[in-house]
Design a protein around this nucleic acid. Structure first.
Length: 228
DNA sequence: CCAGACGTTGTT
DNA sequence: GTCTGG
DNA sequence: CCAGACGTTGTT
DNA sequence: GTCTGG
């Protein structure tokens, strides 16, 4: 499998499924994790971190982004940041650019697709946790994750004021190593990716609807249809 | 001490 | 579990 | 993030 | 306006 090769995964702990182009919170995403140092496993993770102490999974619905600036202090992320960092691979991500329209009182929100220029998948920095219902000890374990965000790089700045942390290949081992507790080696990774890595282009507003999906969502749209 | 939250983005 | 607010 | 709902009683 | 669901 392509992802497993690209991320040098040793074990695939999840069945392959079709890629999602419009992932919503609570959906499953791929994650690369190391429970043991150096042993990379491709897992299926629910997007929206459910901390181990949660009474139910509801809390995960709003734990979809974690600010890099405060990761180490937030009760909900502290443990995962210390021991359960992961990589969340993605073809790209969407941001909505406010685009004032002549004669319109409301600005148009133009969805943009951001991806790597070299065509490789992005490696989002993420955190993950496992949870099991405290009222049902025999119930299933739920593995969940959260995407780490930071300030935007130069290229994204006109589009949005935050962006996911995108790790370069040279940072993967340091980030994934569960025995690395050295903040001085982790903190420098949580910075905006170089603008040169990325490209942004406008896509159809069909992506606004969570039920829309499929590869055509990332098709570039013509400038004429920018202002519909 | 106990109770209650535990998060982010964007918009007004 | 752990932090904050009262 | 956007889209879409925005409610209760009583029954299974 | 604000919350929930995807």
């Amino acid at each position: 499998m392509l992802l497993a090769e690209r991320f040098d995964v040793d074990e695939i702990a999840t069945e392959a499924h079709q890629p999602d182009y419009n992932v919503a919170p609570r959906a499953s995403v791929y994650g690369i994790v190391e429970r043991m140092p150096g042993a990379r496993v491709l897992e299926s993770l629910r997007w929206g971190l459910v901390p181990s102490w949660a009474k139910d999974t509801k809390i995960g619905d709003r734990m979809i982004n974690a600010r890099a600036e405060t990761l180490a202090e937030k009760p909900a992320y502290k443990h995962a940041f210390a021991r359960r960092r992961c990589i969340l691979p993605a073809d790209g991500f969407y941001e909505w650019r406010l685009q004032p329209r002549q004669g319109a009182r409301k600005a148009h929100k133009q969805p943009m697709f951001i991806h790597r220029r070299d065509g490789d998948p992005l490696a989002f920095a993420g955190l993950w946790e496992t949870w099991c219902d405290p009222s049902d000890a025999d119930g299933p374990w739920v593995a969940s994750c959260v995407i780490v965000t930071t300030r935007p790089n130069e290229m994204l700045e006109p589009i949005h004021d935050r962006m996911p942390v995108v790790l370069g290949e040279d940072a993967w081992s340091t980030w994934l190593d569960p025995e690395n507790h050295d903040l001085c080696r982790l903190a420098p990774l949580l910075v905006p990716a170089p603008s040169e890595w990325l490209e942004a282009y406008p896509v159809s507003t069909r992506v606004n609807k969570a039920s829309s999906n499929g590869p055509d969502l990332v098709d570039p749209i013509e400038p004429e249809t920018l202002f519909q």
